[in-house]
Design a protein around this nucleic acid. Sequence first.
DNA 1: TTATTGTGTTGACGCACATCAAGGAAAAAT
DNA 2: ATTTTTCCTTGATGTGCGTCAACACAATAA
Lengths: 249, 249
Amino acid sequence: MEAELCFACNRRLCTFLPNIHPVSERAVFSLARGERLDACQDGCLKFWIVEKGWAAICTSFADGRRQITGLETGGDTICGLVATPDAPSWLEALDDCVICQLDFSRAARDLQGNPKFMMEVFRLTHQRLENVSIHLSTLGRLDSTERVILFLGQMALRFRPTLDGIVRLPTSREDIADYLGLNAETVSRILTRLKKQRLVKFLSPTEYTIPDMAALERRLPVPIDVVGHEPRMDRFVAGQEFALKEMGA
Amino acid sequence: MEAELCFACNRRLCTFLPNIHPVSERAVFSLARGERLDACQDGCLKFWIVEKGWAAICTSFADGRRQITGLETGGDTICGLVATPDAPSWLEALDDCVICQLDFSRAARDLQGNPKFMMEVFRLTHQRLENVSIHLSTLGRLDSTERVILFLGQMALRFRPTLDGIVRLPTSREDIADYLGLNAETVSRILTRLKKQRLVKFLSPTEYTIPDMAALERRLPVPIDVVGHEPRMDRFVAGQEFALKEMGA
DNA sequence: TTATTGTGTTGACGCACATCAAGGAAAAAT
DNA sequence: ATTTTTCCTTGATGTGCGTCAACACAATAA
């Protein structure tokens, strides 16, 4: 099946909805590290698809403390992120990345009657709920070393298709800390400790390999899993673009 | 509009789906404190509606550490909770409570074509995603005192309809700790400190009032909010039962 | 009545993690 | 090339919170 392309931006249209362009307002953003897309506060319905690079789903408190609630890449879809005046929420580029924004606000009424669309929206939301719930448990009940080990393992799984086995982190130490509820110095200290224990091997501050995944997992009371973030070969091909996956009938 | 009642259990049927009984397998469980309903691991689709009392959404790790990811009561609906072999997930009664279980597994295929049903399922899931995300941020970035203050404030908002202003906690100190990622002794110590500061007034270990909600909120970098848990008068009437709310067309 | 059990409080103590600070290495800017 | 900036690492230090233990109190059982 040949995917249709958008005549304007030459990107593939959503495969689960044949004519998504007419009903969604589509925009493509190229963001540099640190740039943001803010979640809206009204009842709008925007999707963001991370087509290239890595982006973080962030929230912050009034005093500036930041928490990253999700790390998204190649084809991951953020569905209906909302913000409140006091609890802003946004998508932040971790490296140079391309985000496709689909705005279904105007088409929302019609789409509610489209079972395929609703099913896909439900699937995306439910999957993310599962991931956030697990993340929540780790912040509540794992100590800092366990959190970092889990993070390294999860990123390794998401990078598995790069068969040299090298994980190229898109995140700074502070990003990792904000994801894990720690601070950057603690993350750095734990990494050096894990290096000495030969649980991870660093080629550079942002490139590592896991010599023995099973050994890593034995240090954890939870399995290392990345449901909903299964890696796809094409994610790691530069310049590749993505579309919403066809939903399983 | 008169709500239909189930001839078997004399409970109201879901108002958004006229004939929910024929398509869902319905069961009502009366649970004593500590009893559980386990989430299934296959692709089944079960809803739990907390009709009376309080229940906690729990997960645990292999070594027994428990994390509570949600506290639910009068009419709150848990939609599609799933578990994995290594990360069990369950609903646990905090006091004597009544849970209505709707099993849509067999009807799932048909219901996917029902936009009202899908819309309601999406709304429930998305709302819970919002709540879990905020909860995650508090575990990652608030210190223990802030977490306890936020908890006291949120419970007070959920109890607002009891106009004597008294909050009757259904949770033990350990339950609170498992919700906040702390331990029971720490929670107890923080509560006595807050008592001395007159931020909260305890009538008994499980009954309190908030003399000055604004003062409480000034101690936090986040607003105290309970979206999706807006209190309803009938929640606090003993023996009252609930049904899924009619969705906003 | 006297045990018993569950729950909450408080104290002593230690460690894990945050904070503050300094220095190095790499990248970007000039 | 030189400066500037960003990022990472490491050390010194303090404290927030967990752990272990003892005890009070209420509810239930024997």
